[in-house]
Nucleic acid binder design. Structure first.
Lengths: 99, 99
DNA sequence: TAAAAGTACTTTGAATTACAAAGTTAATTA
DNA sequence: TAATTAACTTTGTAATTCAAAGTACTTTTA
C-alpha cells in the first residue's frame, strides 16, 4: 500500500494557514484585524500567509472602508473552499481508518 | 473568538510525518523499507523525519534481524498515539464546525 | 496644526526546516 | 572478491517561517 502524500495539500501544511482558512470557511469574510486577533499574529506574519493563500488563489482580497478608515477584507474563493474541504476530507478518512 | 494554534501539533504540521504516524497507528510496527516504500521517499529524507519523531518521543526504534539481514523497525509510542489522535481530533472538530 | 495613532502592508534578516545526493559502515550474497 | 542491501549520516542548498522594523497613507487627538 502507498500513502499518497500529494493528497495532503502543501498549502495547508501549516497551522496558521489552516487557521485562516477555517476562519474564512465559517465567515463570509474577515478583516485583516479580525484575523490578526483571531490568530494572535504579528502584522508581517499574517500578511505573508495571506499572500501565500492569495497566490494559491484560495482567498480574495477586497479593499474598502468602514466610515473613513481603510478596511481590507479577505474571503475564501470557491477553489479555496474546495481545496480545503478536500484536504480535511482526506484527513478525515485517515481518522476513520485508524478507528 | 480565538483560534488556538497550539492545539495543532507542530510535529504533525508536515505531510510526511503525518504519513509515518498514520502508518504506525494501523501497523504495530513497520520497517525502514516498508516506510520508504509506503511514502516513496529517499533514505535520507525518511531518516530525518523518523529522527524528528523519535526525538519527540512519538516513535521507538528497534534494531533486529530477519534471518541474517539487519532489520530496523519503528513503532508508535503511547505518547505518540495520543498526540496524533489529539491532533486529528482537533482537526475533526474543525471539520464539524465547518459543516 | 503638529503629533500620535491606526491600517495594511513590505522589507530585511535570521533561524529553522526540508530535501536530494553522496558518502559511510557493516553484513551478505553472487 | 565484487556487488548488493540496510540503515543511516553528512553535506549543502533551497525553501519556509517569523519577528521586527520600516513605509505610506489617513485620521484622530492634543
Amino acid at each position: 500500500m502507498k500513502f499518497d502524500l500529494d493528497k495532503l495539500n502543501k498549502v495547508f501544511d501549516n497551522r496558521i494557514r489552516v487557521g485562516i482558512m477555517s476562519g474564512l470557511m465559517v465567515n463570509e469574510s474577515l478583516s485583516f484585524n479580525d484575523l490578526k486577533e483571531y490568530l494572535s499574529l504579528t502584522d508581517g506574519n499574517l500578511a505573508s500567509h495571506l499572500k501565500n493563500l492569495e497566490e494559491s488563489q484560495y482567498i480574495t482580497v477586497t479593499k474598502g472602508f468602514i466610515g473613513r478608515k481603510t478596511n481590507t477584507t479577505y474571503s475564501a474563493t470557491e477553489e479555496g473552499k474546495m481545496a480545503f474541504k478536500q484536504h480535511l476530507t482526506y484527513l478525515e478518512n485517515l481518522i476513520k481508518e485508524l478507528k
